[in-house]
Design a protein around this nucleic acid. Structure first.
Lengths: 135, 135
DNA sequence: CCCGTCTAGGTGCGCCGAGCATATGGGTGC
DNA sequence: GCACCCATATGCTCGGCGCACCTAGACGGG
């Protein structure tokens, strides 16, 4: 058996697990910072943890945001390349962004509590030959 | 029609959206701190953001953890009340907890970035009669 | 004795987010 | 003509999650 291509080290970053619908607030934030089209958002999403290349998900999320009235879009003719659908935030979108932030702050604090509880515990009990739970 | 009981103010906390499989690492952490049975874990989960009463989910998660070899359980006879299934962590479980923490740290940082980016932006652009996006 | 309540553990089921593959089509350069 | 980039999508499957519901022992009151 021969490995077809080396998929070695597919994620140098430890593959964060993002909150459930994190894409939505991220898009709202990016669009609040600056209106954009999908392909552009795909790039600007990277520093927010979306390293994986999944345009399909992005475009679906944008359409859903639009049917929910949180963003609105217009087609923009392009001389060099395909037309692009430009998105911008609605007032509803801004409001929901604000609510999302409130919610995500709570998430942030819970995560902080989890992490501090973990580090606190391992500080009390350094893993040098602990009572050795046998499996 | 008469309200049977006041369900007023169902969530004083703004209903945080937790990361995808957050229950798993939480259970691993709690069991690392101290072995316990399901019903007990249900209580100890509350400060970690699981305010909603969903025993089914918990027990399912525990069974899954066990089939994955991350915890092990024994039945414990009880004189006062039903028997209880006591869970404790395996070595694999501890290792996976450690990995989960690494991953969740990344999540934590990303969330922090999102939140600081939001607050930074609203600081630059206080919402007093902004250019008024019309819907 | 029956019944409600608390403790403890568990199943069924449908929805929807997430991941992955695949399709379409215009523009540019070889 | 063909490969490649840009740009926008659709199809499909899987699993987490939420909600409802079920079983059963112990205990106390009417």
């Amino acid at each position: 058996m021969k490995e077809p291509e080396k998929p070695i080290a597919p994620d140098p970053t430890p593959a964060q697990v993002l909150p459930k619908n994190f894409l939505r607030p991220c898009l709202l934030l990016l669009l609040r910072e600056q209106p954009a089209h999908g392909y552009d958002l795909l790039e600007r999403l990277r520093p927010l943890g979306f390293n994986r290349d999944d345009p399909g998900r992005l475009y679906r999320a944008l359409r859903t945001l639009e049917t929910d009235g949180l963003v609105r879009s217009v087609w923009e003719k392009s001389t060099s390349g395909p037309d692009r659908r430009m998105y911008e935030l609605t007032r509803e979108g801004m409001e929901l962004l604000h609510e999302s932030v409130t919610s995500l702050k709570a998430t942030y604090e819970i995560l902080g509590m989890f992490l501090s509880r973990y580090t606190e515990f391992v500080a009390l009990r350094p893993p040098k030959k602990s009572p050795a739970p046998r499996d």
